[in-house]
Design a protein around this nucleic acid. Structure first.
Length: 271
DNA sequence: ACCGCTGTTCTCCG
DNA sequence: TCGGAGAACAGCGG
């Protein structure tokens, strides 16, 4: 259920898994995962992983001239398994020269894989429309203001609009707003420069935190019983705010649940 | 049994 | 053209 940090970790993990290895063959199960394009280019993939890029929540892998776009959707993830071990909800498989298999596992099928010529990866719809990526392109407060400062959208909705800014999802948009002390329902165009600066910093902090949280040998997003919610505001409705103890509230915004602290994130503009 | 969900895209409407 | 709401995709867990 990935946002930028999880996708970036997936990218790094894939690079590690492919290091010094060759892709021997691919296998695809016929599902919605391959909803665009044709099967032929996917079947052709082989050899060393020559490039692994990420833009927003999209992964773009290259095996020489042949490329692969992968989007994890809500429940997609890559896992590496020993030969012969089957993986529930495996939608695509990458067999390495060691015999190990990297599975694209995706129960809900919101994710997508598309193979095409490497040079066409950047032209794919979805990829092409992406806005600035805070890690790949950098994001200072001027750039942030340029990206979302003109829209009438609610601030949180604007932050999640992948065509304006690529990579933030429901969690990290909420986290960044909490760190910046901004109400998610503020209009994006109403921010003061002080607030833009705070928000730009907060975005970087949230993403950094996400990256540090997720770093590990295996990409693992599964919530385990007893493991505490690592986020400052996301998923904390009804519990005391970590900063001020005020009861955290939530409401629906752009079809998604937004969590915020009414005291720390007042609607009042800070000049 | 019903609801919600770390996402995207589409449609319908004003 | 923009923005808002709702649906669709599909499985699982509370």
């Amino acid at each position: 259920m990935p946002e930028l940090p999880e996708v970036e970790i997936a990218r790094r993990t894939l690079v590690r898994w492919f290091e010094g290895r060759e892709l021997v063959r691919t296998e695809a199960t016929k599902t919605r995962t391959f909803r665009s394009g044709t099967a032929a280019p996917f079947a052709k993939l082989k050899g060393p992983l020559t490039k692994a890029d990420r833009r927003g929540k999209y992964l773009m892998l290259q095996f020489g001239d042949e490329g692969l776009m992968a989007h994890l959707g809500m429940t997609g993830k890559f896992v590496k398994r020993s030969p012969g071990v089957d993986e529930p909800y495996s939608r695509a498989r990458f067999v390495l020269d060691t015999g190990e298999v990297i599975h694209f596992r995706d129960p809900r099928l919101f994710g997508e894989i598309l193979a095409t010529k490497s040079e066409l990866l950047g032209e794919l719809p979805g990829v092409k429309k992406l806005g600035r990526d805070p890690l790949v392109d950098g994001l200072d407060w001027h750039q942030l203001k340029d990206a979302i400062g003109k829209t009438k959208l609610d601030l949180k909705v604007a932050l999640m609009d992948q065509t304006r800014l690529a990579g933030l999802g429901n969690i990290h948009a909420a986290e960044a707003l909490f760190r910046a002390g901004l109400h998610p329902g503020r209009k994006a165009k109403s921010l003061s420069d002080t607030e833009w600066k705070a928000l730009a910093r907060a975005i970087h902090k949230s993403l950094e935190f996400g990256l540090s949280e997720q770093d590990g040998e295996e990409i693992e997003y599964v919530e385990e019983p007893g493991v505490e919610n690592p986020f400052l505001i996301y998923g904390r409705a009804g519990t005391p705010c970590r900063k001020c103890k005020t009861k955290v509230k939530s409401y629906t915004q752009g079809g998604r649940t937004t969590h915020f602290c009414p005291k720390c994130q007042s609607k009042k503009r800070k000049p």
